[in-house]
Amino acid sequence: MRAQFVFHEVWIGLRRNLTMTVALIVVVAISLSLLGTGLLFVKQVDNTRSWWQSRVQLSVYLCTSSALGGTCAKNGAVTPAERTAIKNELLQTHDILSIQYVSQSQAVAQFRQEFADNQTLVKYLVKYSASQIPSSFEIRLKNTEADAAAVTSVMNGAPGVADVVDDTTLLDQLYKLLDGARNAVVVIAIFLLVAAILLVANTIRLSAFNRRRETSIMRLVGASNFYVQLPFLAEGMIAGLIGWLVATGLLIGAKALLLSSLQSIFPLGVQLSTADLVEVIIVAMITGLLICGSTSFLTLRRYLRV
């Protein structure tokens, strides 16, 4: 009885305010889906970062006879003595997780494997410049972010070292791009959420004005505040819920189309799971209900006093 009455009132309210309701739903839907996209981005970037964290390495390339970098041009190809010196030097740096020597022939083999689908290139290289592929030390650090720069500066210029390549500097650019995209999405979402809040307030105000006769009579015959306010509150919440449902659809679509195609660029280990998506959708729902509910409530306190 009570529930049926309240729902009837809500339905009347939503229908009378159709344009405002639709505007509200659209804005809530878009802001929630942008917020959700932002959150998915955050997850993607975090996942990618931690995946790489355990894999990034420093490559210390050693001199070949024809290399020009570092001390190579002066001293020529690395000597076994220099190699041992470099290795000892690296091992003294206490926070090294692993160190691996990749000889020239191993490097060539790796090259063959990585470019297996480009046989022309492989053939050309092996034939003419196999001797130019440098041997190297592949180093993993315990704490890459903190120590990579230090190791790099020590190694650069050491005798027999041609070049030091720090993977993180490559990744940093990728991160910057992703972080920028994420921030842009989140900022837009916040602006839209503010718009949604104002729209909710306005919709409730209009609705309260439209139904001032009903509410004045309700107060007169002694309806409790809860009863007077519930239809309005429910109106805001239902609009929010519908907006959230639309946003859920958009988010699933966004994950399928946008993020999945982005993921083809990323390594396989960091795909976003369905659980991630569900989590984001739940966060969006809570945000939507909270925004619509609390705004309705606060607006009502101003316009429906006893």
Binding site: R213, E214, S216, I217, R219, L220, V221, G222, A223, S224, N225, V306
Partner: peptide
Amino acid sequence: TNWKVPHLRRRIGCVFQDFRLLP
């Protein structure tokens, strides 16, 4: 208290010059 005012009003009926019916 404010939240008990509705209960007071349930014990009071009101009639006005302008009827105040819902059209």
